[in-house]
Nucleic acid binder design. Sequence first.
DNA 1: TGTATATTGTTAAAAATTTCACTATGCACC
DNA 2: GGTGCATAGTGAAATTTTTAACAATATACA
Lengths: 217, 217
Amino acid sequence: MHLQKYERIPRATIARLAVYVQELEVMEQQGIKVISSEKLAWSCGVNPSQIRKDLAYFGEFGVRGVGYYVYELREAIKQSLGMDRTWNVVMVGVGNLGRALLRHHLLRKRGFVIVAAFDCDPFKIGEEIAGIEVQCTSKLPQSTIDMGVEIGIITTPPERAQRAANYLIEGGIKGIVNFAPSRITAPENVVVEYVDFIHNLFSVAFNITQHQIKGLL
Amino acid sequence: MHLQKYERIPRATIARLAVYVQELEVMEQQGIKVISSEKLAWSCGVNPSQIRKDLAYFGEFGVRGVGYYVYELREAIKQSLGMDRTWNVVMVGVGNLGRALLRHHLLRKRGFVIVAAFDCDPFKIGEEIAGIEVQCTSKLPQSTIDMGVEIGIITTPPERAQRAANYLIEGGIKGIVNFAPSRITAPENVVVEYVDFIHNLFSVAFNITQHQIKGLL
DNA sequence: TGTATATTGTTAAAAATTTCACTATGCACC
DNA sequence: GGTGCATAGTGAAATTTTTAACAATATACA
Ligand SMILES: NC(=O)c1ccc[n+]([C@@H]2O[C@H](COP(=O)([O-])OP(=O)(O)OC[C@H]3O[C@@H](n4cnc5c(N)ncnc54)[C@H](O)[C@@H]3O)[C@@H](O)[C@H]2O)c1
Ligand SMILES: NC(=O)c1ccc[n+]([C@@H]2O[C@H](COP(=O)([O-])OP(=O)(O)OC[C@H]3O[C@@H](n4cnc5c(N)ncnc54)[C@H](O)[C@@H]3O)[C@@H](O)[C@H]2O)c1
């Protein structure tokens, strides 16, 4: 077990470490055994020092003069991120996006197991998607407590997100990923993360415009 | 038209501006006409100075001693982000996620119109989803040129993402949003943005663990 | 065993971003 | 018109994050 030095770790570091894992997996499949920070950086689109710095928060995983052993590094990062275990997840709101996520097999592969899904629409209750039966939202709090679920995913319409969050909080959840484009309030001890990929479209659109403006100057 | 001062704008600012728009819309629906940076900050989960600073990149939109007029500010931000127009978008890969996005009406509301969808699976070609007929990928480059499409969304499996990107690039696209968990290479003049919400799950999981560790100390 | 080479871990510098503190200004009411 | 109050805009300070530089060290090979 590698000791994490006790420093606050930049959230950007966490996101990058996840990318490193992803690229290391590709490399492993290609039969690459050893990789330098320079080459890994190149394929992740970051600076080599950045990689070494990011890793330094968690320990020493490389061999000077040699590089990193792909398999070992991947495992070490996963362990550092707490990804060497599985997390039980529940979903609230089984609509278009919810269904897509339920059918997304990569979640399980990454250690996130959706153990239950809830919706308030009586027409959806009882339906089975990817082996999960949709249940009535009223059962949520007790279920999550019983199953020891730690993470909740919200995929309801935005105006229902707070209500969904309240159920999850009542169910003793420790973290929420909210896909609805609305802010929610939760107690201090509940970690909340927002996902909204329209932001990414905004960002691309904005950068295209900037590019064009720059081109004209 | 507000003049953008010529400075590089932090990418985080762009993401936040999109959140401000979202919250301003909610406030507008609630009949709120004027808002202070402090109150807006509160509901967006950021610092008030941050809001004022973010806005300052694009101009002066408020009234000292009063605050910001909700409607005007929203419009001003949208204009600054280049969101006062519509963007034509194409999708490559109509699977679980692709379908969800095609049916996601908020995209259109935000000015992103999916004008065509492509897949290489013969069983999917010809199918109609949310009014869009799935076409064969081989038609992509010519179609995007003909329709003047500027943004491409990739929702293929990761190992196909580069191929999808190549089609888009051939079709003269200016920006790509890649939902597949793999890096792609594209010419300098093509803006690429990656979306992977497993990162957000990682982040929540990590923060839950940290929280618990901190609790123990 | 010694030397050259590669590449990490780490410290220091630079750059970017956020927050603070203060100034300027608009509004309401006397 | 003057005064008090609220709040935007802004330059400077603080903080965070990234990048660069280099010392430490493992390997290969003479
Ligand atoms: N569809 C997409 O691709 C997409 C993309 C990005 C974000 N989103 C966001 O994700 C959310 C869901 O989108 P969608 O397209 O799946 O919408 P949807 O309308 O298809 O699904 C929403 C589901 O939530 C259920 N629901 C509503 N209130 C509920 C409650 N209180 N408790 C439990 N379930 C409840 C509804 O019955 C419905 O099944 C929205 O907020 C949307 O903005 C969707
Ligand atoms: N399902 C989700 O909720 C989800 C969530 C996050 C990320 N993703 C990612 O999004 C991508 C799509 O996921 P999915 O669940 O929709 O997968 P999927 O297998 O359901 O869909 C992929 C689609 O891409 C098509 N395709 C494959 N190669 C193609 C090519 N060269 N050109 C055009 N089309 C091609 C396939 O025919 C299929 O229809 C994956 O990379 C996945 O990791 C999915």
